[in-house]
Amino acid sequence: MLEIKSVTCVKQERCLFESLSFALDAGQIMQVEGPNGAGKTSLLRIIAGFANADEGEVIFQGHSITQCYDDFAAELLFIGHKTGVNGQLTAYENVCYWLDVHGYERATNIYDILAKLGLVGLEDVPVRTLSAGQQRRVALARLWLNNAKVWILDEPFTALDKRGVVMLQQQFAQQLSRGGAILLTTHQDLTAHFSALKKVVLEYRH
């Protein structure tokens, strides 16, 4: 579904990775590993189409994403370090806004999903008053409310408690079982077992 073809990224005259190639098929989960500064986030941002690769290209369903970015964006869910949650808005408003700008119907079960994520009673307070983990949960509520084929998640487990990590991995399994693909970076190993787990290891290069 998603193919990365000899992608090279150079930042501040340091080559982060060179001629990196791999493919991600439907039902697969791929974990990008590497020490801090190895270029994991840069790689994810190139694949999501926010940054351009110095060389190489990213192919989605047979087309380069630079040529048909809108088609790719329609099937993409990206959650980065900066999650896109507005601190002034409430959890409910944040979820609704995200659904609106991505063209999803406002599901009737938004409150149920927020409750499932442990945000009962906090749906209507400004998100900035919540803890870091709760703010992350507001962003992650999107994973229950989309039908994107490709999920790109940069450190999704940051600030989450153990129960949150388990719940997130159950949702990963759900995405894989309906034929989606997941690309994520994380420092801890996934605790759940995924048979379709692939890994890409980036070395820190000087």
Partner: peptide, 8 residues
């Protein structure tokens, strides 16, 4: 980033 990664 979320707005850019939207189909709209």
């Amino acid at each position: 980033e979320q707005l850019i990664a939207s189909a709209y």
